[in-house]
Design a binder for these strands. Structure first.
Length: 455
RNA sequence: GGCUAGGUGGCAGAGUGGUUAUGCAGCGGCCUGCAAAGCCGUGUACCUCGGUUCGACUCCGGGCCUAGCCUCCA
């Protein structure tokens, strides 16, 4: 089977065929680095990391670009508040983003372009837009003229004229059309800025993605991805800019949009103040648990975040790692076909996780547990799960104990003796004593073993 | 108001025109001196009203409800 992707542009699931059979180009909208990432920001990072893994399995060459927006009014604000240059802010939070995403098993993209490193390309693109009559200068700003682009609204299925009716925006007087958006805006002396044909200023938000995707992936790209809230206006504007600047019929051939993470069914967003910061969550949960939760719902559906979901993911991972500890002998194995098939069907992660759990059943059901365990691990790798040493995973949440191994063994021997003389009261006393000190005993056919209790 | 996506068993969450999702919890069993852990088994769920059909949770239409976008936002 081939890879199928739900394309927002056509609102249908389509077979994915790259423009160039030899290479796939993917661009995902990355973070604006003015603060720590919340779990809602982590969802696209994890989902499109998974896309990258799935594509890489089938295509020789996948170029995955995920930008960093490092010039933006919110960054300016944060910098001003601290009295530092914007680079200090953007560097700090870009580093934190990388650290947090790594903990979630997110691989680094092939390219991570930054807006401030592409100012010349941005300016050149704006000049082309002016030359082709799609943009105009007004009071130090350069604006995109939406009336010049008849297909405007195609992605978000909006009618340009109707949007004016819902004008909740203050319409700047210098705009020809309320829907016109800023490509370049002037900077006062206290704000970061670059020299341009229109004076010292800075780029508008949308233009950077158009300029950077063209610079690194070409004028027509295969897949463009981001959160659902970017469909309008950001992606709509990107399409307008890119197609006008390059005179092409197509900008991105497939558009993918992830649904929101919600808290108590409400969208998590910085403006609502109900954000759960990844950096904080990682203090309480392994990154892999967060990843599992993010994969537990289909990416286009809303995902309601809760402690219950975290506990459930933790319990499931504990069980799977326990299985690996007992049965995985490091054999190599292929990815389970059901897991691969589910993921290639528009990243159906719930079905893939169901298949993963079916493999787990085979581990205990078969005589050849080792082969099934190896398959479990190989399949987990495609999902970005189950790649730690089981002992390391299981040790994460274990309590500390003051007892030495020798002391524990000695007590186990004493209990064994008590059991042999059928003094169960004494045997249970020893077991309870050890339990109180964080040691759990497990009686099996080969005698008694022990392990540290979970916190 | 315009546009979009949803309403599935205790919870989470896939999917399908007629046959087991899966996970977590619960329940039963195996194991155990008793436990714990583990393993095995277990659930006639599909918002509502019509329609199409031999047959609909699955298709079509109406209704109700929820969330989102239309403003910075993943």
């Amino acid at each position: 089977m081939s890879i199928r992707i739900y394309n927002t542009l056509t609102r249908r699931k389509e077979v994915f065929r790259p423009l160039d059979p030899g290479q796939v180009t993917v661009y995902a909208c990355g973070p604006t680095v003015y603060n720590y990432a919340h779990i809602g920001n982590a969802r696209p990072a994890v989902i499109f990391d998974l896309l990258y893994r799935v594509l890489s399995r089938r295509f020789e060459r996948v170029i995955y670009a995920r930008n960093i927006t490092d010039v933006d009014d919110k960054i300016n604000q944060a910098a001003a508040a601290e009295g530092v240059p914007i680079e200090v802010i953007s560097r700090r939070y870009a580093d934190a983003y990388h650290e947090d995403m790594a903990a979630l098993g997110v691989q680094r993209p092939t390219i991570e372009p930054r807006a401030t490193e592409h100012i010349p390309q941005i300016i050149a693109m704006i000049e082309r837009l002016i030359d082709s009559g799609c943009a105009y200068e007004a009071e130090g700003h350069v604006l995109f003229d939406v009336a010049s682009f008849p297909d405007y609204g195609q992605l978000s299925r909006r009618d340009r004229r109707e949007m004016i009716a819902g004008a909740r925006v203050e319409v700047a007087p210098y705009k020809k059309n309320p829907g016109d958006f800023v490509l370049w805006k002037p900077s006062s002396d206290d704000l970061p800025g670059w020299d341009s044909p229109w004076g010292r200023g800075r780029p508008g938000w949308h233009i950077e993605c158009s300029a950077m995707s063209a610079a690194h992936l070409g004028e027509v790209i295969d897949i463009h991805a981001g959160g659902q809230d970017l469909v309008f206006p950001h992606h709509e504007n990107e399409i307008a800019q890119s197609r006008c600047a390059h005179g092409r019929e197509v900008f991105a051939r497939y558009w993918m949009h992830n649904g929101f993470v919600t808290v108590e069914k409400r969208k998590m967003s910085k403006s609502l103040g109900n954000t759960l910061v990844v950096h904080e969550l990682l203090k309480h949960w392994p990154g892999e648990v967060l990843r599992y939760v993010l994969l537990s719902a289909h990416y286009r559906q809303p995902l309601d975040w809760s402690d219950k979901a975290l506990e459930q993911a933790q319990a499931t991972l504990d069980r799977l790692y326990g299985l690996l500890r007992e049965h995985d002998r490091g054999e190599s194995a292929a990815v389970d076909p059901d897991v691969a098939e589910a993921l290639e069907d528009d990243l159906n992660t719930p079905t893939a996780l169901a298949a993963l759990n079916q493999i787990a059943r085979r581990v205990t059901a078969d005589d050849h547990g080792a082969a099934a365990a190896a398959c479990l691990r190989a399949s987990g790798e495609l999902l970005g799960l189950l790649q730690q040493a089981p002992a390391d995973w299981l040790a994460l949440r274990q309590v500390e104990t003051a007892l030495s191994d020798a002391e524990i063994e000695k007590l186990i021997e004493a209990r064994k003796a008590a059991r042999e003389r059928r003094d169960f009261a004494e045997a249970d006393r020893i077991r309870d004593d050890l339990a109180g000190r964080g040691i759990v005993l497990k009686d099996g056919p080969q005698g008694t073993s022990w392990e540290l209790a979970n916190k």
